[in-house]
Computed example of a mutant assay.
Amino acid sequence: MNSLSKNHTDSSSNVCIEDSYISTGDDLVAVKSGWDEYGIAFGRPSTDITIRRITGSSPFAGIAVGSETSGGVKNVLAENINLYNMGVGIHIKTNMGRGGFIRNITVSHVYMEDVRTGIKISGDVGDHPDGNFNPNALPAVKGVRLNGIWGQRVIQPGLIRGLKDAPFKGVCLSNINLHSAQRTRSNTPPWKCSDVSEGSVQVSPSPCFELASTNGAGGCSDHFRNL
């Protein structure tokens, strides 16, 4: 197994990151593709990225996509991941002004322990390199499949916040169990969501109502059928 301080993939294709232990003060593995108007102009996406058999710890994220995704990110597979003492387990992140897209992201077979937030998909992360970004350049997030994720001592299982003018679509959650004894003493809802659609199956604690039903979850139908 390799020992790494961080692995950062930017505007790259056909990349495999595997069999590594990573301990860092930043995201363990980050997939990016350019920053705001510069990434849009360069226009080179990160595609066909495989991340597997990674173990690590960080105050930030374990597996991250973004937040600089202005050239687009698609076809990312992360599997067999073990995370300890994390800020966020899985973080898919972007912002207004980014443009670009995040599409066809699959994360499966993840174990996490002592984590602040298990799953975070957010449209309000990251600053801008300068004031020349276009606030109307909205990212398109579609086709995020999360399956087989188990965690202990996870304070908040999920936080999913799309953009009002660019809702996240095709977010499919399955076979997810993220619990915390600390949370049972609180009245705080375990999941928080907005501007997101599709569905879930076998998720505990139950996700937010936007993702709670499998009825009519057209974007998740194939995913759920193959479980």
Rank of each mutant, 00 (worst) to 15 (best):
E79C: 07
E79W: 07
E79N: 12
N82S: 15
N82A: 14
L83T: 01
N85S: 14
N85L: 13
G87L: 05
G89T: 08
I90G: 00
H91W: 14
H91I: 05
N95D: 13
G97K: 10
R98I: 11
F101Q: 04
I105N: 02
I105V: 13
T106D: 06
V107E: 01
V107I: 15
V107H: 05
S108I: 01
H109V: 01
M112P: 02
E113V: 01
D114K: 14
V115T: 15
V115K: 03
T117K: 11
G118K: 07
I119C: 02
I121W: 01
I121R: 01
S122D: 15
G123P: 08
D124I: 09
D124R: 09
V125L: 09
V125A: 12
V125Q: 10
P129R: 15
P129N: 09
D130F: 11
G131Q: 13
N132T: 13
F133E: 08
F133H: 14
N134V: 07
N134S: 14
N136G: 12
N136Q: 14
A137Q: 11
A137Y: 11
A140E: 10
K142Y: 12
K142I: 03
V144T: 06
L146H: 07
L146C: 06
L146G: 03
I149N: 02
W150V: 12
Q152C: 02
R153N: 14
R153V: 01
V154T: 04
V154D: 02
Q156Y: 10
G158D: 02
L159D: 10
I160A: 05
I160P: 00
R161H: 13
L163A: 08
D165W: 08
A166H: 09
A166D: 04
